[in-house]
Design a protein around this nucleic acid. Structure first.
Length: 685
RNA sequence: UGCGGGGUGGAGCAGUUGGUAGCUCGUUGGGCUCAUAACCCAAAGGUCAUCGGUUCGAGUCCGGUCCCCGCUACCA
């Protein structure tokens, strides 16, 4: 099937944090490569994105920072948009879901489905936080797990025993927003009856067996377990208002609203209200000859492959996604990327730390993209890919070719006089590259496509090494002209073929070669892009080596943020259940002094202490060796639980327990009176 | 717990309908000097997570087990 035009979307990034390398590798970079390639082919393509600005987490972030949700999304919309632009992600439009067009489009879409009687209305009881005056998502309710007694189970799942829960299962539920006990309140919501739509959804999925295994498999899994109706509205005040009577205080579910953002962004771009072109957007969403492709990360698969298509089917006039090439996740230095833990390489920071090195990051992320499974980004690998591949193979081939051309011919392209048999073989080989790379890109195999591009540069290096023009120049000047002509043609072809992957470098190189900027993808199959006597400009280096210091600095930056998190960002444990004075009084806590201290052999943490409790002198084994050296704590005053049942630890009988304060980093400290008049045996109460 | 994806030489990946494992980087040795000590050639390096089965023959098919990730707050 051939298409007249393409609508390509990249997942709307959630506007509560900046963009990091995981976003890029998973979604935006492959999408951009795909789109740039299509444009080079001369296809009619629209590249759509925008920030996703609704949903509960944004309201919570706003509350935390004491600003309005609008201020939160304004801030991140700005940061993300700027970073994308500077990184060369070539969206035709980067819109936002808080825009007027979007509110109108999304609510209109909902209204259409409502009028068609698609939705099922249902009244349910949900937990409501009276203090915060809002309904609570499952995840914002914690309480005691009915199965294992864990006091901090979430409303949807207990992380201790793994059982999945309903918020109403929790014993003693509390709101994480206010800490108050939430109340059950009736609320009406509108559900998309996915259960009824299952047959047509299934037929749709089954017609796309070519989808990536992770995508197809995930869809089948959902279908096999039977689709359930899903609420498309939420009780919240931040979002697109539900456009029907009796729905005050309700907004569209973000997952209903967000994908419609693709449509509203298209409208905004092509059909500005009241201007010519009204309705043009529909070509890109409703015409059967348009190919719709969604680039997303693996967490979004069901929404894009099942729920959004179901919405489009229910509406009736839209085309369905032709493919949803979801990538897996990128890890960073062995750990999951996390916005909240600040474990990430932020794009806006990268652009400052590695100025004008967009293409290095683009190369690294593409070469190492998590296409089939999760991958790991390491700074060391980033450095290696830059130095050993971009600099040594691609940059070097181009540089040596241009340097020789200037040296021998003052920058004028020499004539190819006579081809040898090997020349002809190489020229044939070269002409196959555009086709080969194209095929990889069209099958969403971007790593493979990039590797092929590098193979062309490798072929160039080999050609130079095999033919040694720097030696022949002394004996066979004529032959050298042909060799250099061929090498230059390879450089010209590289300029075109690298554009989707390395657009900044391509532009720079094109200027160096004085190459016609209007060249198309298919031109790269030719071997005469540079005409004889064409003048090229002075050569400069396309890539610089990245030195050790730059890498160490980045690694250090990550280490710092890890440390900061451990201390600052850890949540304070909620209080234990109420206890009685009598229970407390059963504990006999006294002041004591450490008389002797020694390490317990073959252990990391234990110290054997001799304590004067005022009552007696006794041995206590305590797990504090990581924080105190034995010799430093002799004479230290401490608090001891003296009536704790004795226990053998590593063969030593420990009678009692030293009380310690523990901070969020797990660091321990003694608890002692702050007056000198307190003596051994004095009570703590 | 369930479902889905993944587990291949030091690192990152290919392995099509089953026939004694390929590529890039790194490592080692050699060559070259036009080039950012870059380039070219060669070599070493894998019981294909693990156990069992089907088969003349399995990384590739079937079954069990282990590990990582997603579906499950933030999040691609």
């Amino acid at each position: 099937m051939t298409y007249k035009r393409y609508t390509v979307t990249a997942a709307l990034p959630y506007a509560n944090g900046p963009i990091h390398i995981g976003h890029l590798a998973g979604c935006y970079l492959p999408a951009d490569i795909y789109v740039r390639y299509l444009r080079l082919k001369g296809e009619d393509v629209l590249f759509i994105c925008g920030s996703d600005e609704h949903g509960v987490p944004i309201t919570i972030k706003a509350k935390k920072e004491g600003i309005t949700p609008q201020q939160v999304v304004d801030k991140y919309h700005e940061i993300m948009g700027g970073a994308f632009r500077e990184f060369g992600v070539s969206f035709d439009i980067f819109s936002r879901t808080s825009s007027k067009t979007h509110h109108e489009t999304a609510s209109g879409f909902f209204k259409t489905l409502y009028d068609k009687g698609v939705f099922k209305e249902e009244v349910t009881e949900q937990y409501f936080d009276e203090k915060a005056n809002q309904f609570l998502a499952d995840r914002y309710i914690i309480g005691t797990c009915p199965k294992c007694g864990n006091e901090n189970a979430y409303g949807d799942q207990c992380e201790k025993c793994g059982s999945s829960l309903n918020p109403t299962d929790l014993i003693n539920p509390r709101s994480t927003l206010s800490g108050e006990k939430p109340v059950l309140k009736k609320t009406k919501n509108w559900f998309l009856p996915l259960d009824k739509m299952q047959p047509e959804i299934e037929a749709y999925i089954d017609s796309h067996k070519e989808w990536k295994p992770n995508v197809f498999g995930q869809c089948k899994s959902w279908l096999n377990s039977g689709l359930q109706p899903r609420a498309m509205t939420r009780d919240l005040d931040w979002g697109v208002k539900v456009p029907i009577e009796g729905a005050e205080g309700k907004v569209l579910y973000v997952w209903f609203d967000a994908p419609i953002g693709y449509i509203s962004a298209t409208k905004e771009y092509l059909s500005p209200a009241g201007r010519a072109g009204e309705g043009l957007w529909e070509l890109y969403w409703k015409d059967k000859e348009t190919k719709l492709v969604h680039f997303i990360g693996k967490d979004n698969i069901v929404f894009h492959c099942i729920i959004f298509p179901a919405m489009l089917m229910a509406e009736g006039s839209y085309i369905l996604p032709d493919n949803v090439p979801a990538n897996e996740f990128l890890n960073l230095e062995g750990d999951k990327i996390s916005t909240s833990r600040n474990w990430a390489v932020w794009l806006h920071e990268y652009l400052i730390d590695f100025k004008d090195k967009q293409d290095t990051l683009r190369y690294t992320l593409c070469a190492n993209a998590p296409e089939t499974k999760d991958n790991d980004f390491t700074w060391k690998d980033f450095q290696a890919k830059n130095n050993n591949e971009l600099v040594a193979i691609l940059g070097n081939f181009i540089n040596r070719t241009l340097v020789l051309t200037h040296k021998y011919y003052n920058g004028k392209v020499p004539d190819a006089m006579e081809y040898t048999k090997n020349d002809i073989l190489l020229l044939e080989e070269i002409s196959k590259f555009p086709e080969r790379i194209a095929s990889s890109i069209e099958h969403y195999r971007f790593r493979e496509a990039l590797a092929e591009l590098m193979n062309l540069a490798r072929a160039g290096n080999k050609y130079l090494a095999d033919n040694e023009p720097w030696i022949l120049i002394k004996t066979d000047e004529k032959r050298v002209q042909t060799i250099m002509n061929i090498s230059l043609q390879i450089v010209a072809n590289l300029t075109v073929l690298m554009e989707p992957f390395l657009p900044f470098t391509s532009k720079k190189l094109g200027a160096m070669l004085n190459l016609n900027p209007g060249l198309k993808w298919k031109d790269a199959a030719r071997t005469d892009l540079l005409l004889v006597r064409h003048q090229i400009n002075p050569a400069s280096l396309l890539f610089d080596k990245i030195e050790e210091e730059a890498i160490t600095a980045q690694v250090q930056k990550l280490a710092d943020s890890k440390k900061m998190n451990e201390t600052a960002n850890k949540t304070i444990e909620p209080s234990k259940p109420e206890t009685s004075f009598d229970d407390f009084n059963k504990m006999d806590i006294r002041i004591g002094t450490i008389l002797e201290a020694e390490r317990v052999p073959k252990t990391d943490k234990l110290l054997k202490l001799l304590i004067d409790t005022g009552i007696d002198k006794r041995i206590i084994v305590s797990g504090i060796a990581a924080y105190y050296k034995p010799e430093d704590i002799i004479g230290q005053q401490v608090s001891i639980l003296v009536n704790l049942a004795p226990r053998k630890i590593k063969g030593i009988e420990s009678k009692g327990m030293i009380l310690m304060a523990e901070n969020s980093a797990g660091e321990l400290g003694f608890i002692m009176p702050n007056k000198p008049s307190m003596n051994n045996g004095d009570r703590i109460k």
